[in-house]
Design a protein around this nucleic acid. Structure first.
Lengths: 187, 187
DNA sequence: ACCTGAACACCGTTCAAGT
DNA sequence: ACCTGAACACCGTTCAAGT
């Protein structure tokens, strides 16, 4: 026997591949272990069971999301930035439905790390508003509202079998939150 | 043996009780069968396996949601109606997190019925806008946007361990979509 | 027609045993 | 320290058998 070398990062990467290919419900210790050429029980040396694996996948998904949304906002001015970020948000959900769903799954006992990741994504939105002149608390409020709307639209679209004729509605919805960028007022 | 009498309605009701008490991940054929005092295999005469049970729970949850949101809008004028509906939406998600999550789970092969239930909920929102003078298509667009925002906020709050100090942010978010009721214009 | 009970494959988890 | 392999409890599903 060739004594496999494992670590949490490798396991998480493999788990996310499973989720990308078979959806969130395909995630299991057995499936991941099989891809690694190892017995299921071997994973317990690095991961806190199935629940721990779910948490790692959710954290990885949030990290990917933050990366893409942040990248979409680079070098784009105010209202355009929000639309670009919204498009990146939506694209991620449609291309990686399993990862997307993992970010909003059960709260879980070790959910404080996930909550921090969500706050980090919120911070990306807040930076756009802060750049437009809104103060810290105003930016936080506007960011939460814009993110909620974007998340809700994308979430319902991903669930509803993706009828991709809602492009205009999505743009209009984002435009609604771009106004706070011009007027310096949310309400 | 007393020969249990089963039907899909009873099974669904029991399944939703399981989800209400133990969360969506507690739903299993075994758990439901046990509460009914019957073997797990007995359920296959009335329900299309675990996946079918999930669908029935999701449909029942949507029915409950439509009922509560519709009831919240009765006898309330324009902007107040939207806020009342938003509060009912939020309350349902916080009181029945398992049911709420079931409505937005995996698309599934038999998801056309669920999609219809979602459209029915959307119709409740559209009626408010139609009552304010918007035409059919305008109402549909406004309803979808308002619902998206409400759903996103509530969904993220329910996931994030429910820090209940976001009441003002939620009210402001809803108020943002009430303006279409006064101005007859969404953008 | 509908439920039982045995049967099977599969999964998560634990643990003694090896290296 | 870390992986194996056996072991256990549990679950979804099928099916022959009873009523």
């Amino acid at each position: 026997m060739s004594r496999q070398r494992l670590d949490p990062e490798t396991i998480t990467r493999m788990a996310m591949a499973v989720v990308d290919e078979g959806g969130l419900e395909a995630l299991s210790l057995s499936a991941v272990a099989q891809r690694l050429g190892v017995g299921p029980s071997a994973l317990y040396s690095h991961v806190d069971g199935l629940e721990g694996l779910h948490q790692l996948v959710a954290m990885g998904a949030m990290r990917n999301m933050v990366t893409e949304v942040r990248q979409a906002a680079i070098g784009v001015a105010g209202p355009g930035a929000l639309e670009s970020m919204g498009n990146a948000y939506r694209r991620f959900a449609l291309e990686h439905p399993g990862q997307f769903r993992s970010t909003v799954a059960h709260p879980g006992p070790a959910g404080e790390g996930l909550a921090a990741a969500h706050d980090e994504l919120l911070e990306v939105f807040a930076l756009v508003y802060a750049g437009a002149g809104l103060d810290r608390t105003e930016s936080a409020v506007a960011a939460r509202q814009a993110r909620s709307a974007i998340h809700g639209f994308v979430s319902l679209e991903a669930c509803s079998g993706s009828t991709p004729d809602h492009d205009d509605h999505y743009s209009d919805l984002i435009a609604l939150f771009s106004r706070a960028l011009n007027r310096r007022r949310v309400r």
